[in-house]
Nucleic acid binder design. Structure first.
Lengths: 357, 357
DNA sequence: TTGAAAGCGGTACCAC
DNA sequence: GTGGTACCGCTTTCAA
């Protein structure tokens, strides 16, 4: 029992094959009466378009591939949601592939999407796996990189981590902190950038504020527990009054653990700021101030870039968009009498759109 | 600049088109020397197989579609990993679609996969969205349902939540608890089943153990914080000594919040058991006993079912596999002098394989 | 083993 | 507006 195809539909409706195709793709080019007949035939036969044949004939598919590093981080799902929002309006679909942070998986999914001739590929890679994009692009595959800095001129959307680290640190300083600590895992390039920004903010105080840097293995809550222990056991005069965590889960671990230890109050004795606006950290007993990377907006921008390239391939210029992260102040840094940001920013804003050719 | 196709490769290698296809699909049917020539041509031209054309000609694709409800829950990613493990050995790929718990998205992704003529669909749906599978299956699409109970005879893999609730409760009782509380959101069918199991275990004690049921809105850490407050403020004689949480994040909220309140000790005053083995709860300061649903194993079983159906469509019989969840004892229920499970179960075990036709 | 040719199911362009 | 038809790129059967 072969599934029905356009020819079957044409026969059942008493029209030609081309007309059926028109009903499917250019409905306005068909008389309402004819169209109704065709649609009835489609329904009664249970006809479902063959996407493979369609892609082959049309030379392009209606699908975008999205290769992701780490689906457990809600930030990446925000990217997906933003992108979906834009593409569904253009009748394009997004299919996901989870690379699980593994080079071989990322490669094999990129290859798969290339073979399937998807209309374009969105890639949120590990920074050190970026070398896989150049060969793809050389073969004419449309790629937009998210949350990483592609070496070749590919389209990309990223956030300014240096700036984010700077803003986070400024926030603590403005809140009255004088002895700062930065905790994070240097194996993540993003964390290194955030630290750089933190240093810059501290430098600008000309010695009024100090910064101690503590290295962790990862950026999980468990790593945060260790930091909390370390801070808790420091003598009073050596203890920081403000902590910049390289990521929200790390901050979450610090906050939870510190609360349980029950000695230091947050934010009075220790102000804590995270990074990511990771939903997993939202349930903290003391809500944690964080830097929002505007994941959905990044997804929207990336999808828009691909769409633009699809529609006007000739005049498309590759762009590198850098978004500014937005401070989301919460209780973990809210010191009495020093409300720095009474009105939380309502939404992230893009910036610094640099044409690149 | 049209990308190279098999014909180009054939020409460059000085062989016929069919030979190139054989190199690609039946390498052993080609002389090593010829094969090497073809492979060299492929490499030098940068030829990449066109998957659409391949699917069309072969009548079936090398891709499986996996539609998921909630990618933020690590349990679902375990399903994916397990399935990928099995399919990669069979040279099949898995593409993901996130339905975000929305009926329209789930439907549109199922439709997309059907159009693309994927080799089969894995579906981890919301229980109440199962009616979408029947029409698909009627049209001959291979579907395996995960973590839900399909009404029609579709293949499925699920865990026995009643049994899980029963085992969890027994564990607390064996640990010496006499006043139990069950907390969970009744809008999740799985939670209702777990409660049923809990009731059964309590009934078997013939009155020696009591069970109080508390309803929450959801199963997040925030809901857990409320439960903790409620328990903490209960008079001593009315307070439970054991809590069965409908899910791990709920348990996490209870534990964290209780620790911070600092009055009740865990597990001495209150033993807590969760459900899910959710990685997000692993970082709890007091590690939380949980019921593992063997996500990876479920994924493996589901993928195996699809593979079997692909290979031997005629003799394939639909099956309903029910897996037994496995207790993972940790500190949140480990009472001094009453070590009930000195050796944690090392791995999940499947059970109750019921042929269904 | 290798080569030639007939589809797979649509799309799009062409006349009518 | 509608119908006929030449492909799209690959797999597969059948002869040589």
């Amino acid at each position: 029992m072969r599934p029905p195809n356009v020819a079957d539909v044409a026969r059942a409706a008493g029209v030609s094959l081309g007309t059926v195709s028109n009903v499917l793709n250019n409905p306005d080019k068909v008389t309402p009466a004819t169209r109704r007949r065709v649609e009835a035939a489609i329904a009664s036969l249970g006809f479902v378009r063959n996407g493979a044949a369609r892609s082959l004939a049309a030379g392009t598919s209606r699908t975008l591939g999205f290769v992701l590093t780490d689906l457990t981080n809600t930030f990446f799902l925000d990217l997906v949601r933003g992108a979906e929002e834009v593409t569904k309006a253009a009748d394009l679909n997004i299919l996901l592939a989870n690379s699980d942070s593994r080079a071989d998986k990322q490669r094999s999914y990129l290859d798969l999407f290339e073979e399937e001739r998807v209309a374009g590929i969105l890639l949120a890679p590990r920074q050190d796996l970026l070398e896989q994009v150049a060969p793809l692009r050389a073969r004419g595959v449309r790629v937009v990189v998210l949350n990483a800095d592609p070496p070749d001129g590919a389209c990309s959307v990223q956030t300014d981590n240096v700036r984010g680290g700077y803003l986070a640190t400024q926030h603590l300083i403005a809140g009255g902190c004088r002895r700062l600590m930065f905790a994070g895992a240097p194996r993540f390039p993003a964390v290194v950038d955030r630290l750089e920004g933190a240093k810059k903010a501290v430098d600008e105080t000309a010695g009024a504020v100090t910064l101690e840097v503590v290295t962790t293995d990862g950026v999980t809550a468990t790593d945060g527990h260790r930091i909390a222990a370390l801070v808790d056991e420091l003598p009073d005069e050596a203890r920081p009054d403000g902590l910049i965590a390289g990521a929200d889960l790390l901050a979450l671990g610090v906050v939870q653990s510190t609360l349980v230890r029950g000695r230091l109050r947050i934010p009075e004795d220790l102000a804590v700021i995270g990074y990511d606006n990771n939903r997993e950290a939202w349930s903290s007993l003391v809500p944690i101030t964080t830097m929002d990377q505007a994941g959905e907006e990044m997804g929207r921008v990336a999808a828009t870039m691909i769409l633009e390239e699809l529609r006007t391939p000739r005049q498309h210029k590759h762009r590198r968009v850098v978004m500014e992260p937005v401070l989301v102040p919460k209780a973990s840094t809210r010191r009495t009498g020093r409300e720095q940001h009474p009105h939380a920013a309502s939404g992230p804003v893009s910036s610094a759109v640099a044409p690149e050719g």
